[in-house]
Computed example of a mutant assay.
Amino acid sequence: MPELITPQGKHSISAILFDKDGTLLQFISLWGSWAGCFLEQFTRQLAKRGLEFPVQHRAALLGTVHDAGGKITGYDRNGPLAMGTMSDLYAILSWQGYLHGLSWAESMELVTLCRQEADALLERSRPVLPLPGLLRFLDQCAACGAALAVVTADETAAAENHLRWLGIRGYFSAVIGTDQVERGKPFPDMALLACERLGVLPAEVAVIGDTNGDMRMAKAAGAAVAIGIAGAADSVAGNTSAVDAAAARCLLPDADSIVQSYEELSIERKAR
């Protein structure tokens, strides 16, 4: 059985379940691009209808951090953009349109238009970047025979695309999107379905994620260990900043182990 080695100890496991955004892919590179396009289109479409969406409300809407020029440079990893499903995001934005004077039907049509524009931007630019040390770690997992799966709040088809864009789809035996289960994170449904697809028991798996929703999902499913990725990668500025231990524990209170990046993790075959 493979042995996962963390700074806090070793864990005998059969499989690893990964969150996708902020865990495999750098979050801001992908979703900063998407959200920035969406909010720009949303503001523009409201203006065409004689309505104004206040600039000061944009960050609070999805849980994003903006620089002085309005560009998204960070995110609240426990906010809607990081933890919500796509349906959650569309509902939040549709509600804003309704609050600003559109009918619910008009607001849903506007959100659909903005979503199509943002999705098209991603398809053209494919702004996906791996977290530091990820590819080395995936190669180690493959060499040790650990079964791997992705469990994401994103929809399955979109997740499959993002993994292919990055060239890592082949590492994973299963990709579970929130559209495949009744309840998303922090509930255990995705983790349990992934274990079923992999043919392993929850007590034999590690869960790696960047939000406390991932950690709570792991706990609810009965996973062997929940590992939080605390490092904050800002691909827009080209910087990677560390989160100090106290801040990391506040962000990921239910994690069994917290690391800054995959450089702190390794996996090897357990000696008989």
Rank of each mutant, 00 (worst) to 15 (best):
A68I: 11
A248N: 08
C144T: 09
D234T: 07
L131Y: 02
I208A: 04
E263A: 12
A248C: 00
A59D: 07
L129D: 14
V205N: 02
M1V: 01
E52Q: 10
L265P: 03
S241T: 15
V236W: 12
H162W: 05
S173E: 14
T112L: 15
E160P: 02
A174W: 06
E117W: 09
S107Q: 07
G50T: 12
L134M: 03
A157F: 04
V151T: 12
G84S: 13
L17T: 00
E268D: 11
L46F: 05
G170I: 11
R269S: 09
V236T: 04
L113T: 13
V65I: 14
E263R: 15
N212I: 03
G97Y: 08
F187C: 10
W104P: 07
Y75Q: 11
A203N: 09
G36S: 12
E52I: 15
D19V: 01
G199P: 03
S29Q: 07
G133S: 04
K219M: 08
V207W: 01
P202N: 06
T156I: 03
R169S: 09
A143H: 11
L148A: 04
A232W: 06
T23F: 04
L134V: 11
A147F: 14
V150Y: 00
T64M: 09
M190E: 12
V111Y: 07
Q45A: 10
D214W: 03
G97L: 13
G50A: 05
T178P: 04
L61F: 07
S12I: 13
A105P: 12
L163E: 05
R269N: 13
E40G: 15
D179Y: 00
E3G: 05
G74L: 03
A232N: 12
Y262G: 05
A47W: 04
